[in-house]
Computed example of a mutant assay.
Amino acid sequence: MLTPEQLIASQKANLETLHGLTTKAFQGVEKLVELNLTAAKAALSESANHTQTILSVKDAQELLAIQANLFQPLAEKAAAYNRHLYDIASDTSAEFSKAFEGKLAESQAQFATLVENASKNAPAGSETAVAVMKNAVAAASNAFESVQKAVKQASDVAEANYSAMASSATSAVKNATAAAKKTR
């Protein structure tokens, strides 16, 4: 049985975890807002500069050159923005996962202790049922660890694919811009 002190300590730990996760969530939102404000300011400034440049164009050839030079930096900035966005989401998600895994490990340990205590106080002849229960707990723990490893591997693969895709897209825009410049 749990004592009142153990219950209070457990509730206090849960509240501290909730506070920590809420703080991390707000930090993630703050970073996202900061990223969006920075991107909006930069886009507004660049738009004004680009408009001024277009207004000073003297012929169609110069206009085409200006437009061709616009696409490469735009693609690079979009890739950088998406990378920052991914990093913010990934960091926040990692904090939540770490907290969840910690609480789950704690719960598993408490449950294992409960099963162990129950097995010590079990009536004679119930050894088979206790062994089955212990095996079920061990199997569930192993299954959860396997799922965690699979999720981690899938996450790593997704991140690698995202990085490769962003790099490929940026390279494609650079190549297209270079090709457009050569045709002029």
Score class of each variant (00 low, 15 high):
46 E>L: 06
13 A>P: 02
5 E>K: 04
83 R>D: 05
64 L>E: 12
83 R>E: 04
76 E>C: 00
28 G>D: 01
45 S>M: 09
63 L>M: 08
12 K>H: 05
10 S>R: 09
16 E>G: 02
49 N>T: 13
34 E>W: 07
79 A>F: 00
32 L>I: 11
12 K>G: 03
15 L>I: 03
43 A>M: 11
34 E>R: 10
53 T>C: 02
50 H>S: 10
61 Q>I: 09
78 A>M: 07
48 A>F: 13
37 L>D: 13
35 L>W: 01
37 L>T: 14
21 L>C: 14
3 T>D: 03
27 Q>M: 08
43 A>C: 03
41 K>W: 05
13 A>K: 07
4 P>N: 02
35 L>V: 02
60 A>L: 12
69 N>T: 07
55 L>T: 08
21 L>T: 02
51 T>Y: 15
67 Q>C: 03
8 I>S: 06
27 Q>C: 09
62 E>N: 13
83 R>C: 05
82 N>Y: 13
51 T>L: 12
78 A>W: 01
78 A>K: 02
54 I>V: 10
53 T>M: 06
43 A>Y: 02
46 E>I: 06
56 S>A: 11
80 A>Y: 02
63 L>R: 03
58 K>V: 15
49 N>A: 15
59 D>H: 06
45 S>A: 11
2 L>Y: 10
29 V>S: 01
15 L>G: 02
12 K>W: 03
53 T>W: 00
68 A>I: 06
40 A>G: 02
24 K>V: 09
56 S>V: 06
86 Y>H: 15
34 E>D: 14
41 K>R: 14
54 I>E: 07
12 K>P: 00
41 K>F: 05
55 L>M: 11
79 A>M: 04
32 L>M: 15
60 A>E: 14
25 A>N: 10
51 T>G: 06
45 S>Y: 12
33 V>M: 10
6 Q>Y: 01
22 T>H: 12
69 N>R: 04
49 N>H: 13
74 L>D: 00
83 R>F: 05
36 N>W: 06
77 K>T: 01
56 S>T: 11
75 A>G: 05
30 E>T: 11
4 P>K: 03
49 N>I: 06
29 V>R: 01
14 N>L: 11
84 H>T: 08
6 Q>R: 07
80 A>G: 07
24 K>D: 13
42 A>V: 05
40 A>N: 05
71 F>N: 02
33 V>Y: 04
80 A>D: 11
40 A>S: 09
35 L>R: 00
58 K>L: 10
18 L>F: 09
62 E>H: 04
47 S>M: 13
56 S>E: 14
27 Q>K: 04
44 L>M: 15
19 H>C: 07
9 A>M: 08
18 L>T: 10
19 H>Y: 15
36 N>H: 15
60 A>N: 13
67 Q>V: 08
82 N>H: 15
20 G>N: 12
14 N>Y: 13
82 N>D: 14
41 K>T: 04
33 V>K: 01
44 L>K: 15
10 S>F: 08
19 H>A: 14
60 A>I: 08
46 E>A: 15
37 L>C: 15
7 L>S: 15
5 E>D: 10
17 T>N: 08
34 E>Q: 11
